[in-house]
Amino acid sequence: MLTVEGLNTYYGRAHILSDLALQATAGEVVVLLGRNGAGKSTTMKSVIGLVPAESGAISFDGARIDRLSPHRIARLGLGYVPEDRRIFTDLNVMENLEVGRQKPRDGAPTWTPERLFELFPNLGRMKDRPGGRMSGGEQQMLTIARTLMGNPRLILLDEPSEGLAPVIVEQMARTILQLKAEGLCVLLSEQNLHFAQMVADRAYIIEKGRIRYSGTMAELAADAAVREQYLSV
């Protein structure tokens, strides 16, 4: 569904991603593991078009998207949830959802606020609350719900567990598995290996902008040497 090949990205003169390649197919949860500054967030931002790629090819469903602007990419059914949530704090829950709304899409689950409130019951109880007056956990739920309003086929989740209480992290894991059950493809970046093991089918390990390892979660779990080398756990 998503194919990235030979991706090179720069911030000014700093080479952030080099010859990065990865794939995600429909119905699977893929995790990008790596340290801070390894290039996980930049990979996500390059895919959604927020950071322009210097060279390389990014295809979504066979069509090239690497020269498109973010809003065109989003309209193809690619949803992006940023790591720092970026809730519209002056807008209430319903308005935040409205900003994310797009037309129903073939081959993707169609979301309405009512359906989302079944997935995130907390949000349903605070429809009129401004985003700025919600706790970190609630904001994290809202930012995912907002992206789902665009009826994406693939969703990019950038460090969804960061800064959340362990109980909320567990809830987040259940949510991701529910999305997978709906048929969504999920690409997430994580530093919390325990969390990744709860939700992901496959993993890529990224270091200094390069993919250093790729394999199923089971293979990674069995490979202590790789975990020691790249994740220091």
Partner: peptide, 12 residues
């Protein structure tokens, strides 16, 4: 555990 730590599955 109930309000914060959860089952302990997300940390070692």
């Amino acid at each position: 555990q109930a309000v914060y730590l959860g089952s302990g599955a997300t940390y070692a």
